[in-house]
Amino acid sequence: MSDTKICLVVDDSRVIRMVARKILEELEFSVAEAADGKAAIDVCKDKMPDAVLLDWNMPVMSGIDFLRSLRKMDGGDAPTVVFCTTENDIEHIQEAIAEGANEYIMKPFDSEIIQSKFRQVGLL
């Protein structure tokens, strides 16, 4: 039994997923990826991750729609969800919190911000 935590990175940009993966693997997460909300739901159905790093604007299904669906799924209240998006205005942040996001990172981000936020929500 390993206690490696799984973090699902949901972002339609391959570059962002790569950068996030690198940072998260350095923090000893096991990383799964999805390019949109719909694909992320499928990953969660298969196995609930411990954490989700979530973009807002994506084709097929947006981050906020994913979050809404996730929180309705069996065991879907367990993952710690951290938005990571360029939607940096207070209205988006408030909507995210209302839908059950645990933290919110405004892009651009770096490894220090990810660490700081993940520590605040008890993932580190």
């Binding site: 942040i93 408030q94 933290e103 990172i105 220090e112 911000i113 700081s116 936020k117």
Partner: peptide, 11 residues
């Protein structure tokens, strides 16, 4: 504001 400040306290 992203270094150390929880999002709920920020808003």
């Amino acid at each position: 504001v992203q270094r150390g400040l929880p999002i709920t306290l920020l808003v």
